[in-house]
Write a protein that binds this DNA or RNA. Structure first.
Length: 160
DNA sequence: GCCAACGTTGGC
DNA sequence: GCCAACGTTGGC
């Protein structure tokens, strides 16, 4: 893994694709489709690199929590689900010759034994600046600082 | 370029 | 299920 890699957090709704679903997938690897927000797309397209580490967050869940950690294993390529009229994330404005939406592949490394709930994260000193905790934050792919990553690793009992 | 209307996200 | 916050669309 490249040193100096970046850290990220991605959201998923467990009713749609849970960390358990992910673990059951081949080689614990999946493509991260369905991102339909330009800011998140830009992170995927421009900044996510092989070896970057990723926090996996369950949104619209009970409880909402960081539930796992993952690693980027393939860099940005077109999100083909945008071209599929039957796909829930279909976007007729994404032209296959000039794709609007991108995705990366990620491998799930670990499901946390103790999920870190949103409430718990809010109570953790040093995480005040985290994008996830910002009021009204909706970014589904967001950067995490090295400091935040270390604090969360300590809380979650995984190696930073 | 402004901004109202609309659709979506996501915590609670 | 509610609803606040947000992003996008489209009329002007």
């Amino acid at each position: 893994m490249a040193k100096g890699g970046r850290y990220w957090l991605v959201k998923t709704e467990p009713d749609v694709f849970s960390v358990e679903d992910w673990q059951a997938s081949k080689h614990q690897t999946t493509y991260w489709d369905g991102v339909r927000n330009y800011q998140a797309r830009n992170f995927i397209r421009d900044d996510m690199k092989i070896g970057d580490r990723v926090l996996v967050y369950h949104s619209n869940a009970d409880p909402t929590a960081i539930v796992g950690i993952a690693t980027v294993v393939k860099e940005a390529y077109p999100d083909h689900t945008a071209f599929d009229a039957k796909d829930p994330h279909y976007d007729p404005k994404s032209d296959p010759d000039n794709p609007r939406w991108m995705m990366v592949d990620m491998r799930l490394d670990q499901i946390l034994k103790n999920p870190l709930t949103l409430a718990e994260l809010r109570d953790t000193p040093g995480l005040g600046q985290m994008e996830l905790l910002r009021r009204g934050s909706r970014l589904s792919v967001q950067p995490v600082s090295a400091t935040e990553w270390r604090a969360i690793a300590k809380l979650g009992g995984f190696k930073a």
